[in-house]
């Protein structure tokens, strides 16, 4: 049994705005019958103000697909088209007080239906740019297509790298066999073999040749570390978190993770990624630790 929130159940048992609008002037059809989820969103848009006056949905799908559709119609009513387009799939999931990872694609479908309907209203072509694969990492809802694309784009070689780039495998680690299979498949395309023993160190070509171990002054060293953290920061902020350098003691670099990072299961993996980048930059082994671990 799925662990659906009360809001999901409520929107499934008592769907709002079910059915097609008779006087709709925007229609978005998305989904895939093979996956068992398909949605038609109809909107009535005021041509003067572009305010969505009414919305209706028809959905072939599971409980969370119907609930996501119902939630979407409630969320868009009264908004202008541009305001509505700002709704992300995470907003839909948040409105429903969360969805199981296997069901996040239901909220994605809602958002796509909205984009398709707006494109239809504006006389534009809407093309789906999103291909969905089998769900590999259930902790962070990462699918096979996403992992494959990321491996190709970044020439990844190890499970650890995949985790750093996609989060997949960063929590319970049950999906590591699945990630290894994808690595094996993608690496084979270029005639490479997946080697589980590949050290997590970086391609020597990428390491700055100027960096020589132990040649930096303390200030240079700290500046370098600051610089690496500044580079990584936007990525972390994109996930609604933040990172700051607290102290450097010999080989120990203490940082503080805040925002969405604090208490996140991924904190350890994030620190691992930061550590790897600093090691590359300094050309020496250091350890990145949360500031709480620094002796008072």
């Amino acid at each position: 049994m799925w662990d659906y929130s009360e809001t999901v159940k409520d929107h499934f048992y008592n769907p709002r705005n079910a059915g097609a609008l008779d006087d709709a002037n925007a229609t978005g059809d998305v989904g895939s019958i093979s996956c068992g989820d398909a949605l038609r969103l109809t909107l009535k848009v005021d041509p003067e103000t572009e305010i969505i006056q009414d919305a209706g949905f028809q959905t072939f799908g599971c409980g969370s697909a119907i609930a996501s559709s119902s939630a979407l119609t409630e969320m868009v009513k009264g908004k202008t088209l541009d305001e509505a387009l700002a709704i992300s799939n995470q907003d839909i999931a948040d409105f429903l007080e969360g969805l199981p990872p296997e069901k996040m694609h239901c909220s994605v479908m809602g958002r796509e239906a909205l984009q398709a309907a707006v494109a239809n209203y504006r006389g534009e072509e809407w093309a789906d740019d999103h291909e969905e694969g089998a769900l590999i990492c259930k902790c962070f809802a990462v699918d096979a297509v996403m992992i494959e694309d990321t491996i190709r784009a970044n020439s990844l070689k190890t499970v650890e790298q995949v985790t750093h780039y996609t989060k997949a495998g960063g929590s319970c680690s049950s999906c590591h066999e699945g990630i290894e299979e994808i690595l094996t498949k993608v690496l084979a395309e270029t005639g490479e073999a997946f080697d589980p023993e590949t050290p997590i160190t970086i391609d020597p070509a990428e390491v700055k040749p100027a960096v020589k171990k132990g040649k930096l002054t303390t200030v240079q060293r700290i500046l370098k570390i600051e610089q690496v953290i500044a580079e990584i920061r936007p990525q972390i902020q994109a996930d609604r978190g933040d990172i700051e350098l607290v102290d450097v003691e010999d080989k120990k670099v203490y940082v503080k993770l805040t925002g969405a990072c604090s208490g996140c299961q991924m904190a350890t993996a994030t620190l691992g990624g930061v550590q790897q980048r600093i090691i590359e930059e300094l050309g020496e082994f250091i350890q990145v630790l949360p500031a709480e671990l620094q002796a008072a």
């Binding site: 059809d29 998305v30 989904g31 895939s32 796509e112 809407w126 789906d128 969905e132």
Partner: peptide, 8 residues
Amino acid sequence: AAFAPTYS
């Protein structure tokens, strides 16, 4: 055919 949604 009547309902042929956009999808890959």
